[in-house]
């Protein structure tokens, strides 16, 4: 297919997708609309996490970094009285700055040690929130965080406290963020991140300062995690240290691994699929106490039977669809995937 046609093709698909996303809340119940807001925020969280994993490092502190954005944004709007949109941006910047400061000790480590080191650093930050009532509010955290308020346009009042309106705000912010993340990945800097991951010695040999790029990926990822935290804080209105504990981190980790991180859409698939299963399907079925068990079983089955993540299904499905649609002239011999 010529490139232009393919581009207009993908643009058309994107338009359909967004039409669906805009219509989506009207097909949902109130509680499902709330879950939709959280899902949107979590998509940004897991996608920012993916940027870090591009350089080959897996962190256990990402949710705490998200919390840094949430706390910073909450304090900026509540204690300093700054407008909420500005506070959110400050939340992202502060999260990025904290990551930058942490990167000096953390990037002396790699692999398993980085994983554990990031966990330790995150827990220390969380304990500091717990310990210092002023300004972090101690174990109870910060309450009555200002929301986006209401605006009046020509007689209409738009209340951003409503899940549907907040969903549109979140969708816009997340879309812009994802677009930026996508631009980064498709650019030379994204190529360099991949290079640092796959062959850091070779990258060094042609002048890549691998440590610098690892730090860059970490800081950018943390900025967007901070933005997602800020989105969360001004929606729920209350944040506390437990909201950002390691269990939440485990969710992010499993979204990324179950979805797969090789493609841009993998973690989105993972997050959406697991959130829908956990918060909608299992909840509807009413297995309240058994919910973690089903979730655990799904995790185990997915790593056992789908080790390359949900994303590895997409090419297979689209191949099936294409075969069904076009009734292809002599069937091409496709190397069987997963036959190894």
């Amino acid at each position: 297919m010529p490139e232009e046609r393919r581009n207009s093709h993908s643009l058309a698909w994107l338009a359909v997708l967004y039409a669906g996303l805009i219509a989506l809340p009207y097909a949902l119940s109130y509680s499902q609309q709330e879950i939709l807001v959280f899902t949107t925020i979590n998509v940004l969280l897991v996608m920012s996490y993916r940027l870090l994993t591009l350089t080959g490092e897996w962190s256990l502190g990402h949710v705490v970094i998200m919390g840094c954005g949430a706390y910073a944004s909450a304090l900026a709007s509540k204690a300093l009285g700054l407008p909420v949109p500005l506070s959110m941006l400050i939340g992202g910047v502060i999260a990025g700055l904290i990551a930058w400061a942490l990167s000096y000790p953390l990037f002396r480590m790699k692999g398993f040690y980085f994983l554990i080191g990031s966990f330790a650093a995150g827990e220390i930050i969380r304990l500091l929130w717990k310990r210092f009532r002023d300004p972090f509010g101690g174990p109870k955290g910060i309450k009555r965080i200002p929301d986006l308020g209401t605006i009046e346009i020509g007689g209409f009042t738009i209340d951003f406290y409503e899940p549907v309106t907040y969903y549109y705000v979140a969708l816009a912010v997340v879309s812009v963020s994802l677009f930026i993340l996508w631009r980064i990945e498709r650019s030379p800097i994204g190529l360099t991140f991949h290079a640092v991951h796959w062959q850091d010695k070779l990258a060094e040999s042609v002048g890549v300062d691998t440590r610098r790029y690892r730090i860059q990926a970490f800081v950018i990822a943390s900025f967007f995690a901070g933005i997602s935290g800020a989105l969360l804080a001004h929606y729920v209105g209350t944040i506390n240290p437990n909201r950002f504990n390691v269990e939440e981190m485990v969710y992010v980790l499993t979204w990324a691994i179950v979805g797969g991180t090789a493609t841009f859409y993998g973690p989105i698939l993972g997050a959406v699929a697991l959130i829908v299963i956990n918060d909608i399907l299992l909840r509807e079925l009413g297995f309240d106490q058994l919910r973690p068990m089903f979730y655990g079983l799904i995790l185990i089955c997915s790593v056992l039977f789908l080790p390359k993540g949900l994303e590895s299904l997409v090419p297979r499905i689209s191949r099936l669809v294409r075969r069904g649609n076009h009734n292809p002239s002599p069937p091409k011999v496709q190397p069987q995937e997963g036959a190894e």
Binding site: W58, L253, I257, L299, V303, P307
Partner: peptide
């Protein structure tokens, strides 16, 4: 869990997280 995932340490970690959730859930039931 761990034998089928021997070449996939990240997978082993996720499987152990899954197992943790199962044990917690069973204990609470």
């Amino acid at each position: 869990l761990f034998r089928p995932l021997r070449d996939n340490p990240l997978g082993g970690l996720v499987a152990s997280i899954g197992f943790l959730l199962i044990l917690q859930s069973l204990a609470s039931v």
